[in-house]
Design a protein around this nucleic acid. Structure first.
Lengths: 220, 220
DNA sequence: GCACTAAATTATGGATCCAAACCCGAGCGA
DNA sequence: TCGCTCGGGTTTGGATCCATAATTTAGTGC
């Protein structure tokens, strides 16, 4: 057999993953309507698994669906994004605390590798992907799936605005991100949950404040 | 036409609502498998809207689905429920703060009415429903849908264990709940967000601690 | 020329049928 | 006796077809 995979993921999962990528990468921007038939044809399936995929992405906070009117990538206003960031400030430290004790040596090596690459200077798209992997990796051993999922949802639904922010501000203040990441890593290595939580909250809070100084991101 | 309703909610929504009720009320307990065909026949529809309903309830945290293996109400162990309570301790104060300024006179009247009925003494099922309405009403004006949904998810996925706890402990320590609710109401009436947050966190924390003293709830 | 209406087009929602995966038990062999 | 394999039945996953709701467009009357 050509497929080595042990478990074929259901077609709906596969389609959801593809659409998720396209939304997170900005290929499908906020406001754009998702046409079931168009997606089905493009991905070579019937409309049914697309419908299920849309439900999945709705649950992920990436789409909003209205009965008989279809699905679209939601526009968020500045107040909504602010609240999403405040949710992150409260939930992510909990995920970090739950995950921290189980972080392995391999995790720390990967985290360091990611941070080195960020510091080497990368374009916006690469930074967004690395930054996402960095933080979600620090939460990855959190044993409670609901918490991991909630955090992922928050990252998903704010990704477009993080990109818009980065594209506006460029790499000017990147040294702050790097300093915060380094401090966080150092606290994690010491297994100092208090410091780790403090640095993480500061990191998210600062981002929120800088973001709210650019209301032009939210005009559409 | 006999139906006055302006907007028929989709069948999948209707079915999801029915199943949600049955899960929250305990008619469908943790561990029980959901058979699509059985539900479809019972509710007089085809399997398709049931499938969509299952996706919705999965997103609500009420079901867990596995590819090709169907959906079931998840068992949670004591550690998972502890983390869900810690999430509540962090998220619900935020929802309360966001909602508080928009609470109306009618809301306060309803809150008082609910509390009076709780104090009058009710059975477990009625208490659970009133308590849920009480708290969710205090969050109802939170303008961010994601936050309201997250809080609702947390209430949903812990409801079974709240019931089990109440059935074990009975009304013995109900006076504490009543005192906490009254203090919370009073702080809300004063528009004192600091006090309201403090009382709310204490309320949830105490419940979590009492719950964790009854590990027998989680044996199955 | 503009506004309102009605029909046609388009997209989503639902039902039925078929295919594939999983589960359980019987039978065989070590 | 235990374990493995093979097969039938059950259940979920996917495709196609039809119904219904929304949108757009063409037409008509003022």
């Amino acid at each position: 057999m050509s497929e080595v995979s042990g478990q074929e993921p259901a077609a709906s999962e596969r389609i959801a993953a593809i659409l998720r990528d396209e939304i997170l990468s900005g290929k499908i921007p906020p406001g754009q309507r998702i046409l079931q038939e168009e997606v089905a044809e493009r991905l070579g399936s019937s409309r049914l698994p697309v419908r299920e995929a849309i439900r999945i992405l709705d649950a992920d906070g990436l789409l909003e669906v209205e009965a008989n009117k279809g699905a679209r990538v939601p526009y968020l206003d500045i107040n909504q994004v602010e609240v999403l960031y405040r949710m992150r400030e409260r939930l992510e430290p909990l995920a970090l605390i739950e995950s921290m004790p189980a972080l392995t040596e391999a995790d720390f090596e990967r985290l360091d590798e990611i941070q080195v690459r960020i510091e080497a200077g990368v374009d916006v798209q690469a930074f967004l992907e690395l930054d996402r992997e960095f933080h979600l990796l620090t939460y990855s051993h959190c044993p409670t799936e609901q918490l991991r999922d909630s955090v992922t949802r928050l990252w998903n639904s704010t990704s477009h605005y993080r990109r818009a922010f980065m594209e506006i501000t460029g790499a000017r203040r990147m040294w702050i991100v790097n300093a915060e990441h380094r401090l966080l890593l150092e606290a994690l290595a010491r297994h100092d949950s208090q410091d780790a939580e403090r640095y993480l909250v500061g990191h998210i809070q600062r981002t929120r404040k800088e973001l709210s100084q650019h209301p032009e991101i939210f005009t559409h």
